[in-house]
Write a protein that binds this DNA or RNA. Structure first.
Lengths: 195, 195, 195, 195
DNA sequence: AATGAATGAGACTTCATTCAT
DNA sequence: TATGAATGAAGTCTCATTCAT
């Protein structure tokens, strides 16, 4: 069997796990659920992932890949609000490419992180990367007068990044937020008049 | 068996459950964990909570009580950033009153909400209440020029409320945020020069 | 539940395990076999033994208890052959008190010892005790001319003790040995004319 | 595909199985263990042995081959003790020719015999052959006064053969026996003054 | 013949819940 | 009411064996 065959099969299982986990969470989903969703046998799944924990970790990592897709976007100029709007829009679009909603898996991963150091590490590293990219954009905003000149770019990045979990939670639980409205409201409270 | 005795017992169990759930999550915690933590017997716990789901719901509700403690604070005037700072500081302080960290239980509750309608309802109602209170403060900020006059107060409330989950996630997973720094950074990006 | 109730229940499970293990061996016997034989539920059995390994160890120890029953007998005087005869007769009789044949479990324990240090330790200690008791009897035999005066009592004990596994193996696999015939043949090769 | 090629492959697999079984026993060893140890594929191994049971039987038979190597030695004259010493010494030497310790496999085979008639038959036949050879030597010993004249040679053979399992068990579990010491102690209790 | 991915029955174990005492 | 032993369904994972390539 070729390398690519194995990778494809792994992807098939991971996609099935993603669908299951995003529906019911890591711990309510049973391996049998994943196995049935993947259309394989128990042995086949365990041939690609050695344990449920390994599958959880892989699914959490996969959900964090969303970040990788979004990072290049962060390099583009613009105001904080326009950045946020592109970020949130991308998140929604990209969910389709995953076959499941990675933001739902991310919420699970937050909870799992509190007792699972491997998952915690994956999430932490992903979020640190995003924050670092945002922080890199801050000096330009400071020069443009969009952010106070004496602010610590790292702290500003924490706040801007921190808007994302809030959006995710509200989208999943309240269901009444949209990228454009969210960005518009951010503009209304920031120094960014036009975006 | 007085009414107050029953209430006390319930509280004892709920506190034990809160400690367990905040440590390891709803589904990795077993009823035996809670029973042992409460120092009671299985029968006793089941005399107060009919099922684990009922206990999860009660614990999620209890964590949402944090909101009730914080709501009056939202009535005070000030800028968005000063509001946020007070909110976050209160959250940290109040954790001690609970004997466990309710924000950790809240993260669990977000995940649980995706498959448990009762928990979802409790969380949703709690968050809608907070957002409504914030929205009520927006017109004053608009009059003070801190928020664009043409903004929808509800949308502004979503964004400001949305900063809280971001803070919670970063506090639990990255561990490098503090209320004052977070509020200061918010001030740096808002129209709020002094706080 | 009283202490003695627990002990009784443990004994019930151990007896069931002994019957199963003596029939089919440690590893071909499933926990479900033991559970059914004990007439209990899975949870009940696991309430008394934390794992199959613990049950195997307990069953091996229990089979070694046969030794404890036999040790006092070793203190009696007589010739090596008469000692052996009493030993083997006792072994057969006592099997009935166990409700299963402990010599069959002992054979299993020999095999298990090669990969299970805990079982190895139990068996080793049991056998060392027997050998020490036999060695203590050797000097009297030497004074009576039944054993060469210059022999090392410990080495003599190894040989005499070593007759027992040989008897057990032949009894189980060939089925054509009996205590009296075995002892008579030993007399025929030893210096012990009369027994 | 020559005949000798097949035989060589079979031998390769059997040697691998012997190493695995002597290390961990028949039932804890998985077919994958044997397959990996043989450096072959699952399909290859199953091309030579139809089932694990067939492999167990073959390995038990192979371990019994030790007996075939030893039988000619039994024809030599001497005392019972000298016979035993040569037997035990040979056993130890020959282990090296096998690439694994056949006495360890023999212990496994004893246990397996209690539920596996095919293995039981192989072991039984091997042991009966040894005993018959020993019995054939007894009359000479009787004439030499080393064994009581009125003894049944078959019973004497059982006892002398019975010393071997005792040696094997003590060698594997206690580790403190050696052929010379064992034989010397036997001499000390038999009518055999010089060996 | 050989490969090794796939199968799926079945192993061990846990745990939410009940109920006799 | 309180206890905690008992239940048994269901969970995770293994492994002897097969079969398309």
């Amino acid at each position: 069997m070729s390398e690519s065959y194995r990778a494809e099969r792994r992807e098939q299982i991971l996609a099935a796990a993603g669908r299951c986990f995003s529906r019911r969470g890591f711990h309510v989903t049973s391996m049998d659920d994943v196995i049935a969703e993947a259309g394989l046998s128990a042995g086949a799944v365990y041939g690609y992932f050695r344990s449920k924990d390994e599958l959880i970790l892989a699914a959490a990592s996969r959900a964090m890949d969303l970040i990788g897709e979004v990072l290049p976007e962060l390099a583009r100029t613009g105001s904080p609000a326009s950045l946020l709007e592109r970020l949130l829009s991308l998140m929604v679009e990209l969910s389709e490419r995953f076959g499941f909603d990675p933001t739902r898996v991310a919420i699970q991963a937050w909870g799992e992180s509190m007792r699972n150091p491997a998952v915690a590490a994956v999430v932490r590293e992903g979020y640190q990367a995003v924050r670092a990219h945002i922080a890199a954009a801050v000096p330009a905003w400071q020069r443009a007068g969009l952010v106070a000149a004496d602010a610590d770019p790292d702290e500003v990045a924490k706040v801007l990044f921190g808007l994302v979990p809030g959006y995710i939670v509200q989208r999943q639980l309240l269901g009444d937020v949209r990228p454009d409205g969210y960005a518009a409201a951010l503009r209304a409270v920031t120094r960014d008049a036009a975006g």
